[in-house]
Nucleic acid binder design. Structure first.
Lengths: 250, 250
DNA sequence: AGGGGCCGTGCCACAATGTGGAACGTTGTG
DNA sequence: CACAACGTTCCACATTGTGGCACGGCCCCT
């Protein structure tokens, strides 16, 4: 409820990230703020090293490399990244579908932090930084299944939003599905969030069993083959388990 | 020179990143600021999604996943990351030394953005987000060599700081070395920045020849073998060229 | 049980700080 | 050549953030 200038500066920073390289004028239109206010904010952010002028067109602003030093603890020192890298590539080679690495943001959502592409002409696309709800995706549920019961109930109490006609919005249905995920070791999503997108996901766990991240294979539903599911489920779970192991030995 | 609260908030954000998970008290000691000021700042940053309370110890603060959506344009959509991944792993397999991917931050410094580890017990270590000067490292010079002459002269005019007794601090010496890098296709660093660390680096270029990033092999000087240099130089240059190519076709 | 840290939170008078309208300089376009 | 569009600078005003203080809760130590 306070620090208006700080809140606004961060909004502007995010807008620059989305539209970079961007001019002062474009941002003033976007926010409906006075030109001088936007300008002052940009200069301040740049002096702090978070923004910089584009090298070719110095009237355009872009994100500075400083932000790379600021990362969630799970990714600090890149142990998760580094550990996940090679298993993800091998998984992609095996199934030839896009692989995503995502981390949970509190109990809010999953955030995509890394990706290995497949070479199909038709493929799913999620940019680094994209978010998705915990209950409606394979990635989210694979994490959710391994959280303490009170966290699961808290999320259910907040309400299960519907994104498609197969989104699990019934608490009991979701609880049952989470149980299945715990026994099978992987989660599945068939068109439950974004139409046409299917995925299989398994969690990367911390020393104490807390889910840190998830490895997911995602594909257009046209290529999803239910007969391969047990096989692929096992492969994904093995990959996630390998990442868990490599991270702990790093 | 303005927006004190914004500048301070960003400093606090960076401090949280370095010390996470961290308490209000630790930050007040670190900055010598009043508790209420730090507290208010943390709450504001958290409301904006940039910070969050640690799940286990809710009095400790850590970085939220929101920051992952804010990245330099070169990394946006992860095209550089994704393109570099596999070539870096292959390079590591070939030389069994640590591989770094770094990007230039304006004309200020290089920032490490990705890493593939080797399996030697003794190895060099640079965390993601670490920075290094442009003139004193292989990574920096490999980028510098491909910048416009006026940028090179601007950097020289700012002064070439000495970090070890082999750091190139003489402008002519540096200019000559940059010429050699352009003809050879790779840069070399023997103890010129951090004592005991050697590296070989080659740049990843944009469509128009602008250096976007650099791929570097780094190793303890005890394992640096000058006889292998031409070979390894070529391999590193080939790897960087492959990343350049993959990125443009992605 | 009791006490001492240390945490998060709330309050409020003060003035430093950020605000935004308006004017200036520059670029490029008809 | 003049006009338009844009980035940049300036400054008086009052909104905004400040920081000292105090309260209540929690945990650890004695």
């Amino acid at each position: 409820m306070e620090m208006k200038s700080v809140t606004r500066s961060l909004r502007i920073l995010e807008a620059v990230a989305q539209h970079q390289p961007v001019t002062v004028g474009e941002l003033t239109k976007l926010f409906g703020l006075p030109k001088s206010t936007v300008q002052r904010t940009l200069v301040t952010l740049a002096e702090a090293g978070w923004l910089r002028a584009n090298r070719r067109d110095t009237t355009r602003w872009e994100i500075g490399a400083r932000v790379l030093a600021v990362r969630p603890a799970a990714l600090q020192g890149s142990s998760l990244f580094a550990a996940a890298r090679e298993p993800m590539v091998r998984l992609r080679d095996e199934v030839n579908e896009t692989i995503h690495l995502s981390v949970p943001d509190a109990l809010q959502c999953m955030v995509v932090v890394d990706r290995v592409d497949c070479d199909h002409a038709v493929r799913t696309f999620h940019a680094i930084g994209d978010t998705s709800p915990l209950h409606a995706t394979a990635a989210g549920r694979s994490v959710l299944a391994h959280l303490p019961k009170r966290d699961i109930e808290e999320l259910i109490a907040r309400g299960l939003e519907r994104y498609s006609d197969t989104t699990p919005t019934d608490p009991d249905e979701l609880r049952a599905e989470l149980g299945r995920i715990r026994t099978d070791g992987y989660a599945v999503n068939l068109n439950q969030y974004r139409p046409g997108v299917c995925a299989i996901a398994a969690p990367v766990l911390d020393e104490d069993g807390t889910p840190l991240a998830t490895v997911a294979v995602s594909m257009p539903d046209s290529r999803f083959d239910v007969n391969r599911l047990p096989d692929w489920g096992r492969i994904v779970a093995d990959t996630a388990a390998e990442v868990t192991g490599r991270r702990l030995n790093a």
